[in-house]
Simulated scan of single mutants.
Amino acid sequence: MTTLDDVLADLAVESEQLESWVAPLDDAQWATVTTPEGWTVAHQVGHLAWTDEASLAAVTHDPSFGEGMKAAAANPTGFVDDAAAQWAAKPAAELLEQWRAGRARLAEALRAVPEGEKVPWFGPPMSPTSMATARVMETWAHSHDVAEALDVAVPQTDRCRHVCHIGVRTRGFAYLVRGQEAPGVDVHVALTAPSGDVWTWGPADAPERVTGSGHDFALLATRRRHPDDVDVHAEGEHAAHWLTIVQAFAGLPGSDPKRLADR
């Protein structure tokens, strides 16, 4: 069984890895564009730091979390971008220090949540372990954006299991957020970890299946790759459609990734 401490340890490693890539950058490199929408390296780190701060406010019941909820309701398509831009405007050294301190405070606060208590969030309330898992997923995804823009080779590790887990658990949400009706069909998911282990979800006798690389499924679930460009395979029409809409993160539908050949 995965514990909160297990997840927080993986989150620390993912965060430190990204920090090692961005800390040596000069101002021009911090302005490197990382996404089609124009987010820079600074936006990526700023977004992670801001989300840690929002998570800490939620865990500690700080009134600022309620204000954030109001801002999200008033500007559902832009409040995340606005926050990223605000944090990206900070000097790089200041941004890094705030991100480093913020994620340490969040880890401490998550460990202090009473047993059985849920943490409020922009979506459904979450357990501390689920919130930490979501932070791993976000850090993993945004690290890939930064690494690809800087031409850094991303090591494949079993930490992507956290991303895969959320991607599978949020299958119903992927339909809901797109105004589609989820089919009443179970899907068995069997993914091969970078270590060679096999991770499974869903009934073994389910009528439809998803198999392949865990790392690649995580790229799909974070909307970083098109289904044609990954080693992930579906058996059954519902499983195949799910791979086109799978989404591990909360909020509105993510952009449909372009095929690598079309980029």
Results as ranks from 00 to 15, higher is better:
residue 238 H to V: 13
residue 26 D to F: 14
residue 190 A to F: 02
residue 250 A to G: 13
residue 23 A to V: 07
residue 188 H to R: 07
residue 27 D to N: 15
residue 2 T to L: 15
residue 29 Q to C: 11
residue 102 G to N: 06
residue 19 E to D: 10
residue 211 T to V: 03
residue 87 W to L: 13
residue 48 L to A: 02
residue 119 V to C: 04
residue 60 T to R: 15
residue 17 Q to Y: 13
residue 249 F to C: 11
residue 96 L to Y: 05
residue 139 T to D: 07
residue 212 G to E: 02
residue 142 H to R: 01
residue 211 T to G: 04
residue 200 T to F: 00
residue 117 E to P: 13
residue 201 W to P: 10
residue 260 L to A: 13
residue 161 R to A: 15
residue 207 P to H: 02
residue 162 H to R: 14
residue 211 T to R: 07
residue 92 A to N: 12
residue 119 V to H: 01
residue 86 Q to E: 12
residue 169 R to A: 12
residue 53 E to P: 10
residue 169 R to D: 09
residue 118 K to R: 09
residue 137 M to F: 08
residue 149 A to S: 11
residue 54 A to Q: 12
residue 165 H to G: 14
residue 179 G to L: 01
residue 169 R to Q: 07
residue 139 T to G: 04
residue 9 A to K: 15
residue 242 W to Y: 15
residue 229 D to K: 02
residue 247 Q to T: 03
residue 235 E to L: 10
residue 93 A to E: 15
residue 90 K to W: 11
residue 83 A to V: 09
residue 238 H to M: 14
residue 118 K to A: 14
residue 202 G to I: 01
residue 124 P to C: 03
residue 166 I to A: 09
residue 249 F to Y: 13
residue 10 D to V: 11
residue 178 R to Q: 06
residue 81 D to F: 11
residue 13 V to I: 10
residue 87 W to G: 03
residue 39 W to V: 01
residue 166 I to E: 02
residue 124 P to F: 03
residue 48 L to Y: 05
residue 47 H to M: 01
residue 139 T to K: 09
residue 131 M to W: 00
residue 197 D to Q: 10
residue 263 R to P: 09
residue 198 V to W: 01
residue 88 A to W: 04
residue 133 T to D: 13
residue 172 G to E: 10
residue 106 L to I: 03
residue 124 P to Y: 00
residue 212 G to Q: 01
residue 93 A to D: 15
residue 39 W to D: 05
residue 175 Y to W: 12
residue 107 A to Y: 04
residue 197 D to W: 12
residue 47 H to Y: 03
residue 86 Q to R: 14
residue 174 A to R: 00
residue 191 L to P: 05
residue 157 T to V: 05
residue 118 K to C: 08
residue 63 P to N: 07
residue 134 A to R: 14
residue 97 E to S: 15
residue 254 G to L: 05
residue 31 A to K: 15
residue 75 N to L: 13
residue 261 A to H: 06
residue 103 R to P: 01
residue 186 D to H: 08
residue 36 P to G: 00
residue 198 V to G: 02
residue 40 T to W: 04
residue 220 L to P: 12
residue 143 S to M: 03
residue 222 T to Y: 04
residue 53 E to W: 15
residue 159 R to T: 08
residue 90 K to M: 14
residue 261 A to S: 13
residue 168 V to W: 04
residue 145 D to E: 15
residue 117 E to G: 11
residue 199 W to F: 05
residue 135 R to C: 01
residue 27 D to Y: 11
residue 69 M to D: 14
residue 201 W to L: 07
residue 188 H to S: 05
residue 151 D to W: 10
residue 65 F to E: 05
residue 143 S to R: 11
residue 44 Q to A: 08
residue 52 D to G: 03
residue 260 L to Q: 14
residue 63 P to Q: 04
residue 97 E to N: 12
residue 257 P to D: 04
residue 15 S to N: 15
residue 31 A to L: 10
residue 263 R to G: 15
residue 110 L to F: 02
residue 28 A to G: 05
residue 116 G to I: 02
residue 232 V to G: 05
residue 77 T to P: 13
residue 136 V to F: 06
residue 133 T to V: 08
residue 49 A to Q: 12
residue 104 A to N: 15
residue 205 D to S: 08
residue 205 D to N: 13
